[in-house]
Design a protein around this nucleic acid. Sequence first.
DNA 1: ATGGTTGCTTAGCAA
Length: 256
Amino acid sequence: MRLATWNVNSVRARHERLLAWLAAHQPDVLCLQELKVADPSFPLDELRAAGYEAAIHGQKTYNGVAILSRTPLGEVERGLADDVDDPQARLISARVQGLRVISAYVPNGAVVGSEKWAYKLAWLQRLRRHLERRFARTEPLLLCGDFNVAPEDRDVANPAAWAGSVLTHAEARVALAELLSFGLVDAFRLKRPEPGLYSWWDYRMLGFPKNDGLRIDHVFTTPTLAGRVSAASIDRNERKGKQPSDHAPVIVELTD
DNA sequence: ATGGTTGCTTAGCAA
């Protein structure tokens, strides 16, 4: 089974690229983030024609997440289901081929110390509680998405330049580590421990031409599935050419 | 040279 996660930065702007990428890479499951459309504007028909069912949690202008699958999606759940009144569409989960797949778009956090920063840290805590309430570490779970956190300095091309940013700050890394302490492992790093692998490059400052990248998009899995991870990669090519997303797809292969 | 990009929506926000 091939599973991927990709922050497309507007499914409308990335429509052609999305269909071309699906055709070229044939993932069984694709988690999407930053749809930036409400549900009725999601290109369901074209994706069905391409062979994919979709579970959507859309939002106009900002956020929005989805899970695409070649096989049927069941038990779809949207949001963190806690007592916080939160209109931001950042989480969706579904059952696919006996697995529980989650597509998450963690808040960026803007600037350390800002209100958005506090929301980011709180959101990661809320996700941890959601996992505890809703799932067991003994079940086959795949938590995928844009986490807006580079877990370690080896995930950052230029750690000195990014020191103290919302993507690398110690508090964000601790919050991510606490999320993973639910009982999740970094599926990508199981197979790809080497440095120099990134999933996001800022549109500004010649980020991609200079390869000033960070690995902030992840696939985390419960230990029951870790042994089935057979390969992992990042499709850096998708960041090239005309009108790319600022994120590249992260791909994980699981043995059946 | 203290900027630089993109997307959504249409001046300003978010990333």
